[in-house]
């Protein structure tokens, strides 16, 4: 089991999770290589969000293995520990600290000691300031740095959240529907941004928007009723009769 996981970044095997008898995740197995970018698609209720919850420690699976970098058992850790291991997560609904400035949002996300006393006496270093500038530039929010996050547009909040994810310097990013509620132009730019990120980090993108997935041009996993229905390039899976059936109805 652990041998099979060796050399992988994320390894899920035989994962099950039921809520009051409803099987949200059903014998799910998924392997992600280091540096890989993966798109996950699937109809509503396919278990995409629950899968993210399990990886990030929000939900504990009933059975199954969830391993990070081949050896770390994620099912035993809580959210904070997993985040500090280097797994960042972006929510479906953009979640930023609305009563902080854009800059403070990034500062809070910067990789640093997370202990209460460390933050109490923390002073921003030059290196950190430079990193903040860099991230603001990447997410195109430099001119909004003093603005309260609450005043950003929906798309800008999505970008700010991605920026916060990057500030954590994670080895794996889990991105839930980054294009939801965006204009076409924003969607295209987001795809570019994610591809840029994927050069240095592993990324899992959950998305509904097929155009967006096509823009990403990566390997696709189709989830259905809590387990993997098909895997491969978008063209391969979209010609798979089972996938067509699930998406178009029987």
């Amino acid at each position: 089991m652990t041998d099979k996981a060796a050399g992988t970044l994320l390894y899920l095997d035989g994962v099950n999770k039921a809520f009051d008898g409803f099987k949200a995740i059903n014998n799910l197995s998924l392997v992600l290589e280091p540096g890989e970018m993966r798109a996950i698609i699937g109809p509503n209720g396919a278990g995409k969000t629950t899968m993210m919850d399990i990886i990030t420690g929000k939900t504990k699976p009933d059975t199954g293995d969830v391993l990070f970098e081949g050896s770390t058992d994620l099912t035993r850790l809580d959210e904070a520990k997993i985040a500090n291991l280097g797994i960042g997560r972006k929510f479906q609904k953009p979640t930023v600290f609305e009563s902080h400035t854009v800059e403070d949002n990034i500062v809070l996300a910067l990789k640093a000691k997370r202990g209460a006393f460390a933050t109490l006496f923390h002073q921003t270093t030059k290196a950190e300031a430079a990193r903040v500038d860099e991230l603001l530039a990447t997410t195109r929010l430099t001119d909004k740095r003093a603005m309260l996050a609450a005043r950003l547009s929906h798309g800008q909040k999505q970008w700010l959240e991605i920026g916060m994810l990057l500030a954590q310097e994670p080895r794996l990013l889990l991105v839930d529907e980054p294009a939801a509620g965006m204009t076409d132009a924003e969607t295209a730019e987001t795809a570019l941004l994610l591809k840029e990120i994927a050069k240095t980090q592993s990324v899992v993108v959950v998305e509904h928007d097929m155009t967006f997935v096509r823009d990403l041009g990566v390997k696709v996993t189709v989830l259905h009723e809590g387990s993997v229905l098909a895997e491969g390039s978008l063209d391969v899976v979209s010609s798979n009769p089972k996938v067509v059936e699930v998406y178009l109805g029987r």
Partner: peptide, 23 residues
């Protein structure tokens, strides 16, 4: 302090704070 900002973060979006790695 940064701790104060984390506290406000907890107030406004507790799970975001958690997923950023704060206990």
């Amino acid at each position: 302090s940064k701790l104060g900002k984390v506290l406000v973060g907890v107030r406004d979006a507790e799970s975001r704070t958690r997923f950023l790695g704060y206990r």
